[in-house]
Design a binder for these strands. Structure first.
Lengths: 350, 350
DNA sequence: GCGGGAATATGAAACGGTTCCACGGTGTTT
DNA sequence: AAACACCGTGGAACCGTTTCATATTCCCGC
């Protein structure tokens, strides 16, 4: 049971292979009668062109690689899903790989992708400034679109407006009377953490509040990190009255607040950075900085597709995804009455 | 800036291409001195074999396709992530695609994968019994491993022991005195729904409880479906005192319970099918049927890798992932005192 | 009836590897 | 010293397409 090749089609239809190829590639200059005959033969034999051979000849694989730290993280699975959908619709396939935050692994992946001759690469590189990584990306000679990262070798990039989101959140808290505001987020080695810290400092300063280094921590990803950081902050003499925390870290923050007897929002206002089901189902529902995470994936895919059209020399493009503040019930005016329906908010959420 | 090919290496090293190839494929019968010289040249030129050309010649792509309904669903992103990790470690690449529950799209995907000559396919097919799909898989002539599905053309398969999980959950509720137990889950067109309904009926029957068709609904995936189903059940004259619901549907169930004034667990016991962060962070934390979802992905990948070794003719294998019941605070004895620390459970969760 | 384009069709080369066969040179055996 | 086996290497074929240069056919006007 051999595969049927273009040669079989040509022989059966009584034409040369070149002709069959031209029929397939809608190249004109093939007579109507022959085109008809060839198409029928193709149908009869169930012929499908071999993509490997096509890639071999055309030097294009119609394949885009995606590298993320870990697809099981909802942040990335949403990006990947949306990107895949756009790419598939454009006739491209998606090679997916996790770098698991390992430089070695990622270098391997980039090389593997290079050997596979992928046409382009979407990446949320694990370490933006690791020379071995930038060198791997550079020497691969593929178009690279960075997702939520700043990468010297990236031609295009996409990311949420984290600084703007923080600004909205902090200004809201200041409006509610808060002066001591804490933030717990991811390391500043990555774009999101860097932007958040930058936005935080700028907004605090603009409000004339003197910044307290103890209230900005940006060194870990996990819920445990959120817990220990929040526990530390809330144990300070000058403890914060409001905390911003990343999606992962927030569950640790909630745990610390409970443990230290802080009621939300009466004693402590919270804003989660990155909205989720969890944020709206927890009690009380959390005010959130939200952005369209699927759109991040779609934009990355679209940037790549257009890059493949225009070529590598056009100037780089950058898409910034706007953020918005979703008001729920986890913030209250400082010292005043908590807003929202307090009693209900203490029950099963809303 | 041309790619460096095996021919360049051969010329530079002063040997024939056959020899270079033999060095690369650790084929013995090449003298130590020449092997040395060739390896040095390879390093100097930065040569990397072209995977497309290798596939062309060897007829193997070392690529595995994965088709899931949607990777943004945590159920699947965990499976995909774990499978990718195993495959990458074995030197395979992963082509990922969403079928978005569309038969047309999935047929297209299977054909595209076939054209790309993937070595194997892991699939959570959208419709188990759709003839167009089974035909597409069959005619593709690739080894197929089914994930949480029963598929006539699948050589191997992996899935959680849903029936067993339901049995544990239902017996627990019966032990607590519940007699009217409802279940809201996914359609029985898929294996998980089918298994759950089967396990549910069997366990109810074994306990001598006469089944009430109004208390088994298995027709939707969404939170909205969970809401409307729960709302319907809880409005019955003979409303259930306990409900099992799938991970997605549960947030709708919680909403319905709240809206109808049912307190959890005092008035209504809940068990979520499929554990998650959300299940443990919601108030009260939900008792859950849990299984190792990452292990599902790993098993699928391992089954595929071993299938690629032993060939297509070996008998099919099936991996059943055990389930366990995680006791939290969402179940209480019928009519008796709720178990667990009631007051605390009404606050911020635990 | 014939020359000359235009329109089609053909065949070979190329993409970059792997593998098989043949060949020359050694070393061993008779 | 001839015959033989064996080992290492070179060279060619092949995988299934696309494409380019070339050949053939067709049609038209003179």
């Amino acid at each position: 049971m051999r595969r049927v090749t273009i040669r079989d089609v040509a022989r059966t239809a009584g034409v040369s292979l070149g002709t069959v190829s031209r029929v397939l590639n809608r190249n004109r200059s093939v007579s109507e009668s022959i085109r008809e005959r060839v198409l029928q033969t193709i149908n009869a034999l169930g012929y499908q062109p071999d993509a490997v051979a096509q890639s071999m000849r055309t030097q294009a694989t119609r394949t885009i690689g995606i590298i993320v730290p870990d697809v099981s993280n909802p942040l990335f699975s949403n990006v990947v899903s949306a990107a895949e959908t756009v790419l598939t619709e454009a006739g491209y396939s998606t090679l997916l790989a996790n770098n698991h935050d390992s430089v070695d692994r990622e270098v391997e992946l980039v090389n593997m992708f290079r050997r596979r001759r992928i046409d382009g690469l979407l990446t949320s590189v694990s370490h933006e400034n690791e020379p071995r990584l930038t060198e791997a990306y550079r020497s691969a000679g593929i178009s690279v679109t960075a997702i939520e990262r700043e990468l010297a070798v990236a031609t295009d990039s996409v990311g949420a407006d984290h600084a703007g989101g923080i600004e909205q959140a902090v200004r809201y808290l200041i409006m509610l009377g808060h002066r001591r505001i804490g933030m717990i987020t991811v390391p500043t080695a990555g774009r999101p953490g860097r932007e958040r810290v930058r936005g935080f400092r700028a907004t605090i300063a603009a409000a004339g509040i003197s910044p307290d280094p103890a209230l900005i921590v940006a060194e870990g990803y996990s819920a445990e990190y959120g817990f220990s950081s929040a526990h530390g902050m809330l144990s300070l003499a000058a403890a914060p009255t409001a905390i911003l925390a990343g999606g992962n870290q927030m569950s640790g923050v909630l745990k610390a607040a409970r443990m230290l007897g802080r009621r939300v929002p009466d004693d402590l206002s919270l804003i989660i950075l990155g909205d989720s089901d969890l944020a709206s189902l927890v009690v009380p529902p959390l005010t959130a900085v939200r952005w369209d995470i699927q759109e991040v994936g779609r934009s990355a895919a679209r940037l790549m597709l257009s890059r493949l059209q225009v070529g590598h020399d056009e100037p780089p493009r950058r898409v910034v995804m706007p953020t918005e503040l979703i008001l729920r019930q986890s913030c209250a005016p400082l010292g005043g009455k908590p807003q929202g329906r307090k009693r209900k908010a203490r029950q099963l959420g809303d």
